[in-house]
Amino acid sequence: MYRFLLTPRWLGILALTVAASVVMVMLGNWQLSRYEQRSAINERIDAAGRLDPVPLTEVLAAPGGGAGTAGPAPHRDAAWTRVTVTGRYDSTNVVLVRARSVESRVGFEIVVPLVLADGTAVLVDRGWVPPAPGGAAAQPEVPPAPEGEVTIVGRVHLSESQPGTIGRRDGRIETRRIAVPELAAELPYPTYGAYLLVDEQTPAADAAFVPIPIRHENNWQNGGYVVQWWLFAGMALVGYGYVARREAHARSGKRRPRGDRLEAPAVAPPAAATRD
């Protein structure tokens, strides 16, 4: 009944079905790995908020090069770790990061180098401010950085991977992305390979700054894709079985011998009534 499945045509269909199912299972496995990675990031974000900050040098390797160089980028597991560091803001090298959105409003993130006692520096994202009247690209009013020693408690943020164009406007560095190696090249000292988002500052940060929110990764989206791809793989195999079964029944019906047509037996007419 199912011998036709061994024909070249049906063997080819089976091979394509299996190959498609394997690919879809592999895509599901990849999405599963993304789900696990994003879940781990969310766990680090939550855990960091409950832990005491540690010294910066326990998380980030000190830059070993000269002026204008960046230190080694930390492992991704270092992201969102709370650290503390003390230094002095370099207000002559303020970085305006344009076109950044907070709560659906477009403005600027203000990044300032914090120069440490050993002459190295770490970039500190002080927060978000709105643009000046005149449009989203209008340079904002930036509250001055406090003078003297400043102690920062912040979260480690990895360098953004896509460098933007870096320029200067009115004596300030302006860019679209916080790409640490590219920004370090504009500075007169070696810089750590990641930057910090301010959680706390002593003396206190200006109230004009809006803290940069730390968004959790959308790991459930990847979880949904896992289920989707695995379902597609199963449906492909079930679909092959369904089509093969229909074909088998169709072939069986064509081969079924047709029985002789039975005719009703002739019934003799009733005898005519005779008259006496």
Score class of each variant (00 low, 15 high):
1 M>W: 11
6 L>T: 06
6 L>Y: 09
13 I>C: 05
15 A>W: 08
16 L>R: 02
20 A>S: 14
27 L>F: 15
30 W>S: 10
36 E>M: 05
37 Q>W: 06
43 E>R: 13
45 I>R: 07
52 D>K: 11
54 V>F: 05
61 A>N: 03
74 P>N: 11
80 W>F: 15
80 W>Y: 15
83 V>W: 01
86 T>W: 03
96 L>R: 13
97 V>M: 09
106 V>Q: 08
108 F>L: 08
109 E>C: 00
111 V>C: 04
112 V>H: 02
118 D>N: 15
127 G>F: 11
130 P>C: 06
133 P>Y: 07
134 G>I: 09
136 A>G: 01
136 A>I: 13
140 P>Q: 11
140 P>S: 13
141 E>Y: 01
145 A>S: 14
145 A>F: 00
148 G>T: 10
163 P>F: 06
165 T>P: 03
169 R>E: 15
175 T>V: 13
176 R>A: 13
179 A>I: 00
180 V>Q: 03
186 E>A: 14
194 A>C: 08
200 E>A: 15
202 T>A: 13
207 A>L: 07
216 H>R: 11
216 H>P: 01
218 N>K: 04
223 G>Y: 05
235 M>V: 15
242 Y>D: 01
245 R>C: 08
246 R>T: 00
247 E>P: 03
248 A>T: 04
254 K>F: 03
258 R>E: 13
258 R>H: 05
261 R>T: 13
264 A>C: 00
265 P>N: 01
275 R>N: 10
